[in-house]
């Protein structure tokens, strides 16, 4: 893959003009907006972006304003991947017929966790099965944030949302997060990876790898939402670091079925004393506030157990443990 030779500095990234422009109406401290900027910093030429309904679609294209300096398409909630396959097929045909310039066009489909875990999964599953050459980016803010913080398949165990409210009866969401990236690995596609905006260099390299690879690629990006997580807006990027350091969201990539840990998680695998307890990650978020009351204290141990179990499983897949 070429991207191993692709060297860049922070200055190169800062100098590249923003293709996701200022003036979008995301909340203050919105990590998904930072993720959008970073994704588009990794583009290598003509690019078409298609999006599912979600926070980033809503805040960036309020009529008559658009924040996208690239061709951009939105049709419905469930079909970001179907749009991408249509775009890719159309470009192929137009190029064959000589109707457009004969050059490679990258197609990126972006969806939130609702548009991927729940509503968009059948379109995504179909598109990768057909083998279209596109990159699917999931920005995971762990609930349906723009409609008022409803739970999704991506909401973690114990999180309080408006449809899984913590109180007398239940301690927030009762089910753990769906391992979506592993589901995509099971589709046997050439490239699957997870990324976190704090490790921006890693994120940009993974987006570029996803674009360079022939065939479908899937990138799962962690994107803290201060509004829905009831956290301090200034801590959004810090939370994306804590999630990696506590192994709640380990960073890895899977190239042609071969799992390998990315540098930030590899450091923790090599020196397990650096792994932080999940308590540190939960304590800074208001959606887990009830876990720190005597009634639901035990759930923290359960979250720690599930996190450790998934981390050990991942280490085994990477051939480390």
């Amino acid at each position: 893959m070429q991207s191993e030779e692709w060297k860049f500095t922070a200055k190169d990234i800062a100098e590249k003009p923003d293709l996701f422009m200022s003036g979008h109406r995301a909340c203050a401290g919105c990590a998904p907006a930072a993720v959008m900027r970073l994704i588009l910093k990794a583009t290598r030429g003509p690019t078409i972006v298609t999006m599912a309904t979600g926070c980033m679609e809503v805040v960036s294209t309020i009529y008559p304003y658009t924040s996208w300096a690239v061709p951009w398409l939105h049709t419905a909630f469930e079909n970001a991947a179907a749009n991408a396959s249509g775009i890719e097929a159309a470009i192929k045909v137009l190029r064959k017929k000589g109707r457009i310039k004969d050059e490679h066009v990258d197609v990126i489909a972006i969806a939130g966790d609702g548009g991927t875990y729940d509503i968009g999964i059948q379109a995504l599953s179909g598109a990768v099965e057909r083998g279209h050459d596109f990159l699917f980016v999931l920005y995971d803010n762990e609930a349906y944030m723009n409609t008022g913080i409803q739970r999704s398949g991506g909401t973690p165990l114990g999180a309080s949302t408006t449809t899984s409210p913590a109180g007398e009866v239940i301690p927030g969401k009762l089910e753990p997060k769906k391992p979506i990236a592993d589901i995509m690995v099971a589709h046997e596609i050439p490239y699957v990876a997870t990324a976190s905006p704090y490790y921006w260099r890693d994120l940009i390299i993974k987006v570029r790898k996803g674009l360079e690879v022939e065939g479908p690629a899937f990138l799962h990006v962690f994107a803290p939402c201060p509004r829905g997580w009831r956290s301090d807006p200034s801590k959004s990027i810090e939370l994306s670091r804590l999630a990696v350091e506590t192994c709640v969201f380990p960073l890895w990539e899977c190239i042609n079925g071969e799992y390998q840990l990315s540098a930030p998680s590899k450091v923790i695998a090599m020196a397990p004393q650096k792994k932080k307890p999940v308590k540190e990650y939960l304590a800074v978020q208001g959606r887990f506030r009830h876990l720190f009351t005597p009634k639901y204290e035990k759930l923290i141990d359960e979250i720690q157990r599930i996190t450790d179990m998934r981390w050990q499983k991942l280490l085994k897949k990477c051939g480390i443990a």
Binding site: A10, K11, I13, A14, A26, A33, A34, W200
Partner: peptide, 18 residues
């Protein structure tokens, strides 16, 4: 001038003037 703020700003409101 490490430029981390330029990279992390969700609004692209910090610019690098080369």
């Amino acid at each position: 001038r490490c430029l981390l703020c330029v990279i992390f700003c969700p609004d692209g409101a910090i610019h690098w003037k080369a």
